[in-house]
Design a protein around this nucleic acid. Structure first.
Length: 425
RNA sequence: GGAGAGGUGGCUGAGUGGCCGAAAGCGCCGCCUUGCUAAGGCGGUUUGGGGGUAACACUCCAACGAGGGUUCGAAUCCCUCCCUCUCCGCCA
């Protein structure tokens, strides 16, 4: 959420921001509501001040004069009541309108409409040339007896998966490896709740707008998280942290749930787009310092890159264009890992910085050394998401005989296995 | 699920209808004192918003878990919700 004062002072900038993000928003409505609200506030405050004065004086009056004075205040109060109702309505409208405004993308965010316009920053590793016809991950894992999507669909519907044997170990191993990788980088591991309140979804800027993507438990008014970012970024919501305890570096691991509404027919095969997956997610909370935020952004990007390097996977990094940015994101780097079956790089990581966009919604603040209270800056990035990461992992490391050689760094996490072979062998 | 207790500033904790945005202590900040250290003295120290200012100053409004209500007046009384704790039950 933007500061209403910021919108007031930089309306044109906000409009430009929306255009760059290809969003349609009504900035003028926010300005208008804000003006109305302030005008009303002056009246209200004056009336309230008057009421307070009168009420206070009544206490000092002799008993026989109180009733008359009280009558006077009563009529004033009736007038106040009308204004108060008006204020409440206006407040709600202003907040609702404010919630729809986007953060201002950084100047270094490229112009563009969709992910096709993202700008490649670098490539690391070289996609492998196969001297045999490579299989896709679904074939590979199914033939090895490690994956069964057919039965998963029978039990739970489309876009589900089930892993068996070393496939199951592989998934847990790679998650644990990612977790250790981040602990080494100084992050505090967090096991967050998977069910959250509306406020957490709104606070991290998924709601309003993203309701269709989230599973809701109607009886309890709770939502299944689509990423650990939601509960982890919310850890200090409503708090005023001491600058001395910043930055906070957390790494959350959780299952993630996404309805993928509107994605019908897209990526229906395999493990690319499914309703439930695991993700290790890094979250940084720090003071409101643009340069510091940028440094964190680079750092969390590098954390992910180093892990991919440990896994011997070729990848590239793209600077995400305006039209592909989320409402709150100021800048985003996607990491795309080489996926032979797609003949292309596919998104496996997404590193975002938000400035104080989430913090404002979460009321996540800190007290600076100068004693002033400010909203924090927040950032997050994937460390690993599985099973999507299994796509490049098994496809890139597959052998002519249909087995998969595991990268050395991963082996200790998968019961010491050097390769995935047919189940039971 | 049943019974009970409670939620006050960064923290501990007092406050049961006006003198309370809130005692006291801790912590923190500034100044002072004392060779150093330890300690001591004085002052300051919630947040959000409006008006005002070049910026301060100043001033007003709101907030004692959240939202409603009673009252001329609510931290204090009533209702709903949220959260914490204790006991019982159930349970991975």
């Amino acid at each position: 959420m933007l500061d209403v004062k910021f919108v007031r002072d930089h309306a044109a900038l906000v409009k430009t921001a929306a255009t760059k993000k290809r969003m349609t928003v009504d900035v003028d409505r926010v300005l208008e509501l804000d003006a109305q609200r302030r005008e009303l506030m002056v009246k209200l405050d004056n009336d309230r001040a008057e009421q307070n004065r009168l009420s206070k004086s009544i206490g000092a009056l002799p008993a026989d004069q109180r009733a008359k004075a009280a009558e006077e205040v009563k009529s004033l109060k009736a007038r106040l009541k009308v204004l108060e109702d008006e204020e409440r309505t206006l407040d709600g409208q202003l907040r609702a309108a404010l919630l729809t405004l986007p953060s201002v993308p950084a100047p270094e965010v490229p112009e563009g409409l969709s992910d096709a316009d993202n700008v490649e920053i670098k490539r690391v590793g070289v996609p492998r040339k196969f001297d045999f016809p490579p299989l896709d991950h679904g074939e590979l894992l199914t033939r090895l007896g490690l994956l069964d999507q057919e039965r998963a669909a029978r039990i739970s519907g489309a876009r589900q998966y089930m892993l068996f044997g070393d496939g199951c170990l592989l998934e847990h191993g790679i998650l644990r490896m990612a977790l250790d990788h981040m602990i080494e980088a100084g992050f505090t591991p967090v096991q967050p709740p998977l069910m959250v309140r509306y406020e957490a979804m709104e606070g991290t800027a998924y709601f309003p707008g993203g309701e269709e993507q989230a599973y809701k438990m109607a009886k309890d008014d709770l939502f299944l998280i689509g990423t650990a970012e939601v509960p982890v970024t919310s850890i200090h919501a409503g708090e005023i942290l001491d600058e001395a305890e910043l930055p906070k570096r957390y790494v959350g691991m959780s299952p993630c749930f996404r309805r993928e509404a509107g994605a019908y027919g897209r990526d229906t095969k395999g493990l690319y787009r499914i309703h439930q997956f695991w993700k290790v997610e890094q979250v940084v909370i720090d003071r409101a310092d643009e340069e510091q935020s940028k440094l964190h952004h680079r750092a969390i990007l590098e954390n992910a890159e180093r892990l991919l390097q440990k896994l011997d996977l070729p990848y590239r990094v793209v600077n995400v264009c305006g039209g592909d940015l989320g409402q709150g994101q100021v800048q985003k780097f996607d990491v795309e890992t080489w996926m032979p079956s797609r003949g292309n790089y596919g998104e496996t990581h997404s590193a975002s910085r938000f400035h104080d966009f989430q913090s404002r919604r979460l009321e996540l603040r800190y007290r600076g050394k100068d004693g002033k209270v400010r909203h924090c800056h927040t950032l997050n990035n994937t460390v690993i998401a599985s099973p999507r990461i299994l796509i490049p992992l098994v496809e890139n490391h597959q052998q002519a005989d249909g087995t998969v050689v595991l990268p050395p760094a991963l082996r200790p996490y998968v019961a010491g296995r050097e390769r995935l072979v047919a189940r039971g062998k």
